[in-house]
Design a protein around this nucleic acid. Structure first.
Lengths: 246, 246
DNA sequence: TGTGTTTCTCAGGGTATTCACAGGTTCCCG
DNA sequence: CGGGAACCTGTGAATACCCTGAGAAACACA
């Protein structure tokens, strides 16, 4: 089931109306903190664990709808943790966190079962989007909730990554796509450059804040070119997207 | 929940009707004094602390609905304080105070959990507005409270930063927007130039007091132009806004 | 390794915004 | 009426903010 809050944000809920539960497992406190914060903001209920033993214990009594699992834990191999989690919760989808250089095939085998993974350092938009996808597909939330964002004549499919305006397909790069998704998930709301940076860029990004301006510029070229603009600047405040006709 | 006091001011209240509680943490006494005064004026209950240790202790027994936290404290790193606060109060939203030049450095992820920040020197209107936003979105106050201020046929949306009179969209600059928001949050009440200066301009503003007259003039041109005026001068006292028909 | 793509830095240019200044207007009071 | 105080507003300069082109660096993929 999805419901729309007064602020216009769309929330995922379980069929019985209670909040979705997510277990976060990582040994770095800063990572669990960051994820907990971001996922709580999605309206989900969060527990965290710092190692495999704790993860299994917490899972047993918390019964999460999804798990975020770092493959690199101090006490157990990631696969071992996964095995024990599966014994407790056979159907729960898992989002793996891995280092960029980790063996791809090992992960590839795991994700065949409907799980998914992101590489560190990740962006919060990416983690949230993939979790939403997992939960949606697992059936823990209402099946009817779909993966297409629509603002005016602009549509973005979170599953196929297809974007089109007024029927014309638009090719976006990965970063452009994430930025547009963030804007479209918060239509008519001013988002500051800091918010965008925190959400769309990975947590270790240490660069210039004007990348945001740059990517807004790219998006405009692709989305607003020769049409009624949908992306607007609020000087001194941030950016927002809204349907062209208004 | 929102309720309107006899003076016409709109107050945020918790679902049980008790006042919202805010904890202010800063080592400069002048800042905590300034903030405490302004936030009490909002009808909120305020406690303050001068360092990280005190903040955590106070938070434990005061259980605030929001925290204002200076990132630059004598005894602990701002992030460390944040971590301990989160352990006490997992869901409480935090408004960070940072120096202007620190913005680029290390505030990655700070706004990601729904938190927010303002840079020093700030204006009180800005702090209050952002706190209201945080509290509203956190659900500590009633969810139904929305982000639109209405006075007569004039509306101001704090989320989209859109302003319109009688349906016509009006473009305002950042300062004009803040001034109008302050007026509209205090309809039918005379606000002195000193009050306006103290609230809308940052606390270290050292300029001429007649900027207020200037900006009132700008607002009139945009809002009252060719219509029944809503902004009125009370010579020797200040300015007020009220619905045109009365 | 090479080629095309993507990400990002840097810097120049444009423009909106802020603000000071000063002359004009209105109002109040004797 | 006359004078002064309070207020209004046109002008212009300094600045903050934003946009975007060019190119370097990192990356993806064969």
């Amino acid at each position: 089931m999805t419901t729309t809050s007064p602020q216009g944000r769309t929330e995922l809920l379980r069929p019985d109306g209670s909040p979705v539960r997510v277990l976060v497992v990582d040994d770095e406190l800063s990572i669990t903190e960051l994820l907990s914060m971001a996922l709580r903001y999605e309206g989900w209920q969060i527990r965290s664990a710092a190692d495999g033993t704790g993860a299994v214990q917490t899972a047993r009594e918390f019964r999460p709808d999804a798990v975020v699992l770092d493959m690199m834990l101090p006490d157990m191999d990631g696969l071992a943790v996964l095995g024990r989690l599966r014994r407790e919760l056979p159907d729960v989808p898992v989002l793996f966190l891995t280092a960029k250089d980790a063996v791809e095939d090992r992960i590839a085998g795991l994700t065949a079962g409907g799980d998914d993974y992101v590489t560190k350092p990740f962006s919060l938009e990416e983690v949230v989007a993939r979790l939403r996808g997992l939960i949606r597909r697992s059936g823990a939330a209402d099946r009817r909730s779909d993966s297409v964002l629509v603002v005016g004549d602009l549509t973005l499919d979170e599953d196929s990554h297809e974007v089109s305006r007024a029927g014309d397909g638009i090719h976006l790069t990965a970063t452009e796509f994430e930025l547009l998704r963030f804007l479209m998930r918060n239509p008519r709301r001013v988002l500051s450059k800091a918010q965008i940076l925190d959400r769309v860029w990975s947590y270790d990004f240490g660069g210039q804040a004007n990348v945001v301006e740059l990517y807004i510029s790219y998006l405009r070229r692709k989305i607003d070119a020769g049409r009624e603009p949908m992306i607007h600047t609020r000087r001194g405040a941030g950016y927002l997207i809204k349907p062209a006709t208004s």
